[in-house]
Design a protein around this nucleic acid. Sequence first.
DNA 1: ACTGGCGGGACGTCCCGTTAGT
DNA 2: ACTAACGGGACGTCCCGCCAGT
Lengths: 198, 198, 198, 198
Amino acid sequence: MGGEPGLRELKKARTKTLIQRHALRLFREQGFAATTVEQIAAAAEVAPSTVFRYFETKDDLAVLADYMSMHTRFTEVFTGQPAQLGPVGALRRTVRTLFAEMAPEERAARYERDLLWLVVPELWGANLGTLTEARRLLCELVAHRVDREPADPAVRAVTDAMVGVTLGVLMDCARNPDLDPATAVDEALAQLETGPPV
Amino acid sequence: MGGEPGLRELKKARTKTLIQRHALRLFREQGFAATTVEQIAAAAEVAPSTVFRYFETKDDLAVLADYMSMHTRFTEVFTGQPAQLGPVGALRRTVRTLFAEMAPEERAARYERDLLWLVVPELWGANLGTLTEARRLLCELVAHRVDREPADPAVRAVTDAMVGVTLGVLMDCARNPDLDPATAVDEALAQLETGPPV
Amino acid sequence: MGGEPGLRELKKARTKTLIQRHALRLFREQGFAATTVEQIAAAAEVAPSTVFRYFETKDDLAVLADYMSMHTRFTEVFTGQPAQLGPVGALRRTVRTLFAEMAPEERAARYERDLLWLVVPELWGANLGTLTEARRLLCELVAHRVDREPADPAVRAVTDAMVGVTLGVLMDCARNPDLDPATAVDEALAQLETGPPV
Amino acid sequence: MGGEPGLRELKKARTKTLIQRHALRLFREQGFAATTVEQIAAAAEVAPSTVFRYFETKDDLAVLADYMSMHTRFTEVFTGQPAQLGPVGALRRTVRTLFAEMAPEERAARYERDLLWLVVPELWGANLGTLTEARRLLCELVAHRVDREPADPAVRAVTDAMVGVTLGVLMDCARNPDLDPATAVDEALAQLETGPPV
DNA sequence: ACTGGCGGGACGTCCCGTTAGT
DNA sequence: ACTAACGGGACGTCCCGCCAGT
């Protein structure tokens, strides 16, 4: 009653992470469609039913559910940027801050995990919800920053431009492991910031 | 013997279109996963095997294959825009031209068909290839117009911004049938063109 | 140690009844197959494991176990009927007496619960045992009353006729809530009693 | 077009019968629940999917679908009985005629198949529909014979009595292979016919 | 003692490839 | 050429038994 003090909860979270880790590894190694839930279960040393206990569908194994939990931190940092910064500038500094907060080894781990869906078409479906939600959030934050409505066309446009640019560069990163997402995103957004594009 | 008389070809194309039309309708009505190939076959009055003769997988039913054929026309129009126009301006005029070339009743039909995948997550996977290809093409056209390399970060950025803005507004159109895609896209791109966003 | 104080017993019985009540309600609302044990557990606010502690299988949730306990009272009343009454007459009066012994609100509650299995095919399997047992008992009581063997064809026939008529009318009641089982059964049995049918 | 002349249809029917035959055999040998669809498929030398192509659910394997086809013959014979016969007499003669029409080896085969569900509780659910339909038909035929409405209580009662007696005796036959259903049913119904039971 | 978590396995749906029939 | 039939296999749901935690 009141938050499950511990051991059970902990093990649950551990199992969930374990299953997803193996799933993502197998998706990368063999492709999404070619990987069966049975294989994932075997790799994680659980029963197939257990996989479905933690993830409703196979697709959900590729969904980064903990992203939602990042939204509050993102909001904090973005909102905290100096008022004279435009939306693009604020986003650049937010991204820099959030990347800096991650320990180096965490960053490497995340890159593998979080960029996978960008290069596996089947996973877009499962992650579209997360993406849409992120877009909605960013739109609101931008609106607040420039003191307009989220439905304002200018707000929509700048938001979608930032999303487009960020996604584009991340897709390149996912395909090319030599690129560092942190700097790549920052540089790409810089292009947007400097003025009328090209 | 010799070149297909063309009649058979025509009938084949007709069947293919027929199957896809019914498939898309059912996807919209019932959702993608809930629609079975058998239902589609029944609706199109063919055998399930025939569906697979025309489309390799069920996913392919949701892919707008004829888009590739639009690329040449798109390239023509885009390239033909006045040299002093920037990429965004050139895209706006290209889009206007292409929309204008469509008969009104064709436009309505296309809206239904072509925007469907934007609101059905499972269909993103199948259409991602088309989208990526379109992005690549636009990137090259932009590069050529501004006389830089396609790999140039500025070229990438403006391309991805245009793609992001266009997709964003199309998603809104798909969800809100009152919006007219032609004007909505044009207005959204106008936001990008006018200068440093917001 | 020693006889259970009875308090624990009582609570147990209460829980069992509670679980079954919710199960039957859900079976009626959603159908048997569509109702999961988890839903039942949630409705009764217990853990799924607990459901299986009280009922061996899901099917058993639909079995009216307390019917066996009614057998002794039934036997008493049936045996106590005047000797000159035939089996059908004795059954009619027994049924009337037993119905009369129930408080009105109990009758309404029982109707809902006890007639459910008649209209849900999947529940026949679980309840067939109870039905067979009832048939066997009635057969013996009839045999005793007419002073013949239970295996006597005439005894079997009259027993099965009564069972058939009763079941038939109860199935009608289950489907048509306007009918009152007490009078409907009585009237139907009256048809059997009056002589060579039709 | 127009009734599938042959080979295909024939093979289909053959496969369906084959699967069901093996299923019923296994149900008898191992019990219903203990028999898996895989086992049935293996015994019939088909794939498990093929089983589900012919029978919607495992339960349906135990349903005697061809009974419906007997209804017309039954109606003919029953209706053709002399007008002065009462419903029970007409049913007795109908049953005798129908049994007589079967070749001896067919009778033996049918007994095995058709009486199985009576002793396997899980199968009652699947067969209840057939039973209910039979009851409805008999009710109508009786009503017509005695020139009353099918809803008339007397009609209902005599119908249900006949159904009850028949079922009861068939259950005994199913459990006791020494009994001959044809004569057992006839004798049991005779009890109903001779007058006020007992 | 009760409950939560997990295993194992059956069911039933669906996809899609192959083979054989018309 | 088109289609029906079937195979094989993945997915996802659900039941129910067991064991470990509180």
